[in-house]
Simulated assay, not measured.
Amino acid sequence: LSRLRWERPSASRGSRPATPDGAANPSDPPPPQDLRSRIAQWTLNEAELLGVTGRGAVSSHGRALLSGHDHGHGPGHGSDSEGTAAEQSLAAARAARLLAPLLPEPLDHVLLQADLTAVAPGPLERPLADALAVLADVESKGGATVYRFTPGSVRRALDAGQSASDLHAFLAAHSRTPVPQPLAYLIDDVARKHGHLRIGAASAYVRCDDEALLNEILADKRAQSLRLRRLAPTVLAAQADPGTLLDGLRAMGFAPAAESAE
């Protein structure tokens, strides 16, 4: 830290002296913005954000972590990469032990409320937090995080591949309170409507009143490049553009006619 502070001068040379109370003179020129000074500032800021330092001093777990880098770098130790890696692993383990009492234990449960909310009384385990972030929206954060279930959030979970039974089982497994009826009704209601309308991509279509002819086209191996699929008894959709579809069907011996958008 001392080296980094030395690399980050507080004012450029030739600046005026500080005020009598020790504060920086407001008329002083700004600190130099050369690359070395900025790198030093970034390093100090990131060290504090990561908890390696606190209020300008190395933390206890930060000191334990750095101890793994104090060995194996002197003369005769440059090739001892295995020993250095082992020392760094031990240092990381010591730092984790020192840091553990300062961090709350991740929780594997939430508290479901009758107003379509869930309260997480602390940080959640990562798989639970990720799953809940899909199923509900964060309403507020603080000592506890409040999630709100809405039709849109439930639909988002269904879009992600979950079924209504999956959602019911997930909530029952991770709630310390019974699943409220309003939440169960919300999931069932959204799931009942979900997927009634289907959206897909199609560049062109083939329409014909003769279903047998469309069956013949689908069965022809030469039509594989057109990526045809049946949308209705008399309609096929294609991933190919209309021009390619027209040429492809003509090459197969059919006589299609182009149809306008109107």
Rank of each mutant, 00 (worst) to 15 (best):
L171V: 06
L50P: 02
A172T: 13
H77C: 06
P242C: 05
P180F: 12
E105N: 08
N45K: 15
P106S: 07
V235D: 04
R55L: 08
D247L: 14
P121Q: 08
S81H: 10
S175N: 10
E48F: 10
S81W: 12
S165R: 06
L102P: 07
S59Q: 11
E211P: 00
P31D: 04
T234I: 07
A219M: 10
L249R: 03
G142L: 02
G122K: 02
A85K: 00
A24W: 06
A47D: 09
H168T: 10
N25T: 10
L35N: 11
L158R: 11
H174G: 05
P182L: 05
L249D: 04
A23C: 13
E87C: 00
L107A: 13
E46K: 05
Q239G: 11
S163T: 15
P31K: 01
I39Q: 12
R63V: 04
L245A: 01
G72I: 01
V154I: 14
G14Y: 03
P121L: 06
A118M: 02
A202K: 07
A204I: 09
G76E: 12
M252Y: 05
A201W: 12
G122L: 03
H73L: 04
T19S: 10
T84P: 00
F254C: 03
Q181M: 10
A133G: 15
N25H: 15
F170D: 02
L111T: 02
E262R: 11
P75S: 13
S81I: 09
I217C: 06
A47E: 10
R148H: 10
A232C: 05
T150V: 09
E211I: 08
P233E: 03
A212N: 11
V110E: 03
L228H: 01
Y205F: 14
E216F: 09
D166V: 02
S60A: 14
A240R: 09
A120T: 00
L128M: 12
R229T: 05
G195S: 04
A204F: 12
D210N: 15
D189I: 06
Q239F: 11
G51E: 10
A40T: 09
A23Q: 13
L183Q: 00
P30I: 00
V154R: 00
A191P: 02
A11E: 07
G195V: 03
V190A: 05
D159T: 08
H69Y: 13
S2H: 09
G62Y: 08
A118L: 00
V58C: 04
Q41N: 11
V110R: 01
T177R: 12
D209K: 07
N45G: 12
S260P: 06
T43D: 13
F170R: 09
P29I: 01
A85I: 00
E48G: 08
I187G: 05
H168P: 02
G62V: 07
K141W: 03
E139Y: 09
H174Q: 11
F170M: 10
H71T: 12
D220V: 08
D108S: 15
E125R: 13
S12Q: 12
A96P: 01
V154D: 02
V52H: 04
S2D: 11
L107N: 12
P17S: 15
D241F: 08
S81A: 10
F149D: 03
G83Q: 03
L158I: 12
G68P: 00
E48Q: 14
M252R: 06
A164Y: 00
L66G: 15
A157G: 14
S2L: 09
V52W: 14
